[in-house]
Amino acid sequence: MVKTYKSLYPLAWLYGLGVRLRNALFDCGVLRSVSFPLPVICVGNLTVGGTGKTPHTEYLIRLLTASGMHTGVLSRGYKRKSKGFLWADAGIPMEQIGDEPFQMKSKFPDIRLAVDADRPHGIRCMTAPEVTPPLDVILLDDAYQHRYVKAGLNILLTDYRRPIYEDALLPAGRLREPLSGKSRADIVVVSKCPPRLSESEAEAIRQRLCLEEKQSLFFSTLRYGDLHPFDGPTDATRPLSSLTEDTPVLVLTGIASPDKLLHDLQGYTRRISSLRFPDHHQFTDGDAETINRRFAEAGAGTLLLTTEKDATRLHHLPLSDEVKRNLYILPIEVDILFGERPVFNQKILDYVGTYSRDNRLPA
């Protein structure tokens, strides 16, 4: 059962009143949503953090680029130290664009990635005549509530462990807007599901979501890749299956919801401890001292595991040589359950295929 704070429900009611008014102003046209003459796909959620937006966005990047699409990604660049529109060019520091955009650009150097809190302005910059080759599609990362852009396809994520129908509005829960906001979604994905989710449980979730007939529902799970050394040859990987039940592992995270990761790692080793920091935490030299000390206390043979997102914020730290030698990055990818990957992929490609580059007008 999702934990909410009943004492904060009056404040949540006031917050919800403001959000409902804002949505009503968009719905009646007082606040204007801008459309663009190319496919725009929004990936987002109703809650604050932790639903797996980045791995799902990366899934779409793989799908679209494999289909020959010139793909762009626009993010606000949460907690970046820059302002306005900025291209994520090669060699740009993580601090200038944010950890998640930096992670995506590092993994997919051929995509055009930019950051801008003003999404309409960002799209105009990305589709300017001087941008060559012209983009075929733009992915909006974490922009479900940014209604100043009218995306052609909205993908809404909800965490299997914290479904939106059991949550409450901020600050009593984690909902950014009322549950009715799900009606704007074209596709709903229940993320972070167990890989062997039963069809009966999936059907129970479907019933509780109460989606409209026009909305498609999919279930996704996380799939882990080989461990990559933090400070070593990029080809010196080791399979996650190389862990034994007696391998001591210290998991270092600065993400919103590490519980799913910790739970899954228990399938490989029973000796797991964790060192948690807040989501998007900007690590300091003091944090490095804590990491070095905790790793030394963990004992010989311990592996230190972290996520790709966290790794982007660790490189500047004075980590000990011992920590660097034993620190591994755990890649995370998304898989669609119940054999529906082809169906999901086709829905994305069908939407993008409705646009013809030759028929587009300047934004």
Rank of each mutant, 00 (worst) to 15 (best):
22 R>H: 08
79 K>T: 03
75 S>G: 08
122 G>S: 02
251 V>W: 12
266 Q>P: 10
98 G>K: 05
169 L>F: 02
71 T>K: 05
112 R>S: 09
118 D>H: 13
231 D>C: 11
224 Y>T: 08
190 V>W: 06
251 V>F: 10
211 L>P: 10
229 P>K: 09
238 R>N: 08
68 G>A: 03
199 E>G: 06
255 I>G: 09
348 I>R: 05
208 R>I: 06
30 V>E: 04
254 G>P: 09
201 E>G: 08
47 T>R: 11
289 E>G: 12
48 V>H: 07
315 H>P: 05
324 K>T: 09
162 R>W: 11
271 R>M: 10
297 E>M: 00
355 Y>M: 05
88 A>Y: 05
80 R>G: 00
103 Q>T: 05
50 G>T: 04
156 L>C: 03
304 L>M: 00
253 T>I: 12
361 L>V: 14
47 T>C: 11
16 G>K: 09
111 I>Y: 02
270 R>H: 14
244 T>F: 10
160 Y>A: 03
199 E>N: 02
111 I>A: 06
287 D>R: 10
307 T>F: 05
194 P>V: 13
7 S>P: 00
36 F>M: 05
96 Q>S: 13
235 D>Q: 12
246 D>R: 12
224 Y>I: 07
284 T>G: 09
298 A>L: 00
73 V>M: 03
318 P>L: 10
151 A>F: 11
39 P>Y: 01
170 L>S: 07
45 N>K: 04
165 Y>I: 13
36 F>G: 00
138 I>L: 13
17 L>Q: 15
183 S>H: 13
308 E>T: 02
127 T>E: 07
41 I>W: 13
311 A>W: 01
36 F>V: 00
46 L>N: 02
283 F>R: 06
19 V>T: 12
280 H>F: 15
311 A>I: 05
284 T>E: 12
